[in-house]
């Protein structure tokens, strides 16, 4: 009798796992947007140069925080939401550090969002688009047509949409994005977000406090180097 009850419970558990598994896979497949497939035809770079990245903050800041990130990386989105405001207000705005963002495409589906950010950058609105893509990451990544949603962000941040559309159709930054990805891969960086702060490299969505400590350490090293 106990054996029968156990077996009923066991098969019940198996069925429950199967139902959850099928539902999870089905949900994940629904987020495969129709216009992500065109990313698979991304052009091969031809004599493109890597891009040094977008910089926020003063050239006179003693330390530079270089962030290597991908707009499709969940940890990058989390980092931007949780730590981004503190970094901007308490480190960049105060002149303690400047922030350099280098887009590191982890996969094919990273390319078009990055290209959209570059098209915004062409109109001087990179950081606004960056924030939209990171803060709304879950929304556009799970949308059936993510690029349509990203175009809405482009309008929201005040881009000239005709110029944006031309930029996207031309794919004028795609080679640069791929060349940058290849350069960063060659720097032994394989995950995002990764940060270079002075001579120190750290990976993961680390806390503001950790970044502040590293900035102070790098500042001390810079000052010690300057006084020698």
């Amino acid at each position: 009798m106990a054996g029968r009850v156990n077996m009923k419970l066991f098969y019940g558990v198996l069925v429950a796992i199967a139902v959850v598994g099928v539902a999870a896979v089905w949900t994940a497949s629904r987020s495969a947007g129709a216009d992500t497939t065109q990313l698979l035809d991304a052009p091969v770079p031809v004599n493109a140069s890597a891009f040094p990245g977008y910089v926020m903050g003063s050239d006179a800041a003693p330390v530079e925080i270089v962030e290597y990130a991908d707009f499709t990386c969940g940890a990058c989105g989390t980092f931007t939401i949780l730590q981004g405001p503190d970094i901007k207000q308490r480190l960049v705005a105060t002149g303690l550090a400047r922030l350099r963002f280098r887009a590191f495409a982890l996969n094919q589906s990273s390319l078009l969002p990055m290209h959209a950010a570059d098209c915004a950058g062409e109109q001087g609105r990179f950081w606004e688009m960056h924030d939209q893509l990171m803060f709304q990451q879950r929304d556009w990544m799970s949308a059936s047509r993510p690029m349509r949603m990203i175009r809405d962000y482009a309008r929201d941040v005040g881009l000239d949409l005709d110029a944006y559309d031309r930029c996207m159709e031309d794919g004028r930054f795609m080679n640069r994005i791929i060349a940058t990805r290849d350069e960063i891969s060659g720097m032994n960086i394989h995950q995002t977000p990764t940060f270079d702060i002075g001579q120190i490299r750290v990976s993961g969505a680390i806390s503001y406090d950790s970044i502040k400590v590293l900035v102070e350490k790098a500042t001390a090293q810079t000052q010690a180097g300057g006084s020698e």
Binding site: A28, S29, S31, A32, T37, D70, G74, H190, Q191
Partner: peptide, 16 residues
């Protein structure tokens, strides 16, 4: 196979 959306990944290295 390209049948899923973006890979859910908290470690950041899944796609790599």
């Amino acid at each position: 196979l390209g049948l899923m959306g973006p890979l859910v990944c908290t470690t950041g290295g899944c796609e790599t």
